[in-house]
């Protein structure tokens, strides 16, 4: 059984001639870290939002651990999936602890369990609980906010995590650190991660397999090594070339 499986899924938006997601099929196994790489407008965010049903597909089906998500209750489904977005979306009127507690509270956990879980997660993302628990998001840096966003998504221990360019808005140094930490967190938890990014280095660094998308279609889905060795088509080749050019630029500069 796959952790997640797309079976010939298509999604078209009103007033658009093309499918935003066009006959996409793929499967990921439990514990995988899948990155979805593509430029803006390629359908990668749409693909992610199909998983927690913020969008509904026009055709095809999506299976989560063998269960068709179309048959699931939509709010229950979402509470079982962690969701992190670029804008972070922390609730500014709630403390850090209250933000992390949102889904556990929706699931009616007991107070002690929620509070223990909150501390555990704050520790996991490297923010000492006694210092950060009762702060408000506005009092945190961008990187710290995104750590809280991650902790909040992990709160109810979901088996699947959806991450939509979570590090898109943080500075390069914090970003590299967050990437490192995310890899450690993923390694320790055995969860399946779907991570959307337009940054090719981020995609290849984080993903054990990478999905490359363009115009709503999957061009290639493979390990970073295989993609580099055997790029599927001209588009992937040109992507690789852009990285090499960037590298050359730096070499010449140094």
């Amino acid at each position: 059984m796959h952790a997640i499986e797309f079976c010939d899924v298509s999604k078209k938006f009103h007033g658009s001639a093309q499918n935003a997601v066009d006959h996409v099929s793929f499967a990921a196994e439990e514990g995988e870290f899948i990155t979805i790489l593509g430029s803006s407008g390629c359908g990668k965010t749409t693909l992610l939002k199909l998983v927690n049903r913020l969008y509904e597909p026009d055709a095809g089906s999506i299976l989560l651990f063998g269960e068709d998500i179309a048959d699931a209750d939509v709010t229950n489904l979402r509470r079982r999936i962690g969701y992190v977005i670029q804008q972070i979306g922390l609730f500014p009127h709630m403390t850090v602890a209250a933000n992390i507690a949102v889904v556990p509270e929706l699931l009616h956990w007991e107070k002690e369990r929620i509070s223990a879980r909150t501390d555990e997660l704050l520790t996991l993302v490297g923010l000492p609980p006694e210092e950060y628990r009762s702060r408000y998001p506005g009092q945190l840096s961008g990187g710290q906010q995104q750590r809280i966003g991650l902790a909040r998504a992990l709160a109810a221990d979901p088996k699947l995590m959806l991450l939509d360019e979570p590090f898109g808005a943080v500075d390069p140094i914090t970003r590299a650190k967050l990437q490192e930490e995310l890899l450690q967190i993923h390694g320790g938890l055995g969860k399946t991660f779907l991570f959307v990014t337009h940054d090719i280095e981020e995609a290849f660094r984080l993903g054990n397999r990478v999905i490359i998308m363009n115009a709503g279609k999957i061009l290639q889905f493979d390990t970073p090594e295989q993609i580099i060795k055997h790029p599927a088509d001209e588009f992937v080749v040109s992507m690789m070339r852009s990285v090499q050019e960037k590298e050359r630029f730096w070499r010449e500069l140094l």
Binding site: L54, R78, R79, Y83, I85, Q87, G89, V102, L106
Partner: peptide, 26 residues
């Protein structure tokens, strides 16, 4: 902010819960 309401929906808040817990206070 749209990011905030979308996060609320994506986390599994119903329309009513999003309204009461997130939109109204903000």
């Amino acid at each position: 902010d749209r990011g905030i309401t979308e996060a609320a929906a994506g986390m599994g808040m119903t329309t009513g819960q999003t309204l009461l817990r997130v939109q109204l206070p903000l």
